[in-house]
Amino acid sequence: MSQMNDELVRPGVSGGLADVVRARFLLKLLVRKELKVRYRGSVLGLLWSYVKPGVQFVVFYVALGVFLGLEQSPTNKSGLPNYAIYLFSGIVLINFFTEALGNASRSIVGNGGLIKKIYLPRQLFPIASVWVSAVHFFPQLVILLAACLFTGWHPSLLQLAAAVIGFIIVALLAAGLGLLFGAANVYFRDSENFVDMLLMIATWASPVMYAWTMVQNKLGEVWFTIYQLNPITVAVETFHYAFWLPTTDGNTSIPPHLLSLWVPVALIISAGILLWGQLTFRRLEGRFAQEL
């Protein structure tokens, strides 16, 4: 007779993000499912990953770069050189964040039918949404790289590393907030409206379309320090450092102490929000099936 384990294990107890690692196969299936469902019946399919940011870039470039004079030209020396690269490098990153957080915050409610039928690690749904957003991010990154190479892009290894770290900052932040609002949305559907408002603010609260020096000059050092505590701000600045700065003539600069101070601070804040989101998710997930 085989030896039986006397220890009782409570079924359906979550192991947190560790379950996501252990259920990697399920995560891949969810990512494939989300991609298939999203583009079912679509003519362009994944090409929308190119069309949407392209239209967004043209609108902002014409409105801000041409009409408001943010593009440097022979008659406008106060603008930003290669403003098109500056703008698009920020757009691709902020689009990744807005798509990842928006979809992750709705992922639990959107998969309510599956959650009520079987048990599987619920963290898989927000993380899968972030992963799908990363799939959409990389085609945009390819376009950015092509544009940078066309304008004489010669980055250093430090600049390339800064871009990778910037992406990690945004991914951690989106996953943490996605877990937090994904769980809260099960109990309070107003969370969706709050997330939409947060995403609108995030686009303008980071130097995606304007220079960081404008914030520093208008608000002063104290408020600029508070501004730099936003991990999205730091991540966008690392993308500008990696993709835009090497295409300029060297007369531009990055915020002081970006790599030595603000990047570590942003990593710590994003990791802290991920931990907060995970703890909140684990506390609330026990009644997901009943609430849904």
Rank of each mutant, 00 (worst) to 15 (best):
H154F: 02
P246F: 06
P155Q: 05
E192C: 00
G152R: 08
F194A: 08
T213F: 06
A174N: 05
L267F: 07
L144G: 03
L177H: 01
L160P: 02
A202Y: 09
A266I: 04
H154E: 07
A202H: 08
I254T: 15
T248D: 04
V234Y: 08
N230D: 11
G250F: 11
A171I: 05
T248V: 08
I165F: 00
F181W: 06
N193W: 00
T233S: 03
L258V: 07
P256R: 14
S253P: 07
A183S: 06
T203F: 15
V222F: 15
L141G: 02
W262F: 05
Q140W: 09
V215H: 13
C148I: 13
S206T: 15
D190H: 08
A184R: 09
L177Q: 03
A235H: 07
F167G: 03
F224I: 11
A184Q: 01
I226T: 11
V236S: 09
V142A: 15
L245I: 09
G152W: 01
G220C: 06
P139G: 10
E221Y: 10
I168D: 05
G152Q: 00
L172G: 01
Y241I: 02
L141E: 06
V164T: 02
K218L: 14
A205R: 12
I269H: 07
T151E: 12
N251M: 05
L149P: 03
L198N: 01
Y187T: 06
A171F: 11
L177S: 02
S270E: 08
A162E: 08
P264Q: 01
L245V: 12
V265T: 04
F188R: 06
F150D: 02
R189F: 09
L160K: 02
P231R: 12
G182W: 11
Q159N: 10
A162Q: 04
W262I: 00
W262K: 00
L145M: 15
N217Y: 10
L172I: 01
L141K: 10
L198P: 01
G152D: 00
G220H: 09
M197N: 05
L172E: 07
T233Q: 04
I201W: 12
W204D: 08
G250D: 12
T225Q: 14
V265F: 00
A161Y: 07
F194K: 01
L229F: 15
P231V: 10
P255Q: 09
G178M: 11
P256C: 06
G176Y: 12
M200K: 06
S191M: 14
L199K: 11
I165W: 00
L157K: 05
A171V: 11
L259G: 04
A205G: 10
F167I: 10
Q140L: 03
V263F: 09
W212A: 12
M214L: 15
Q216P: 03
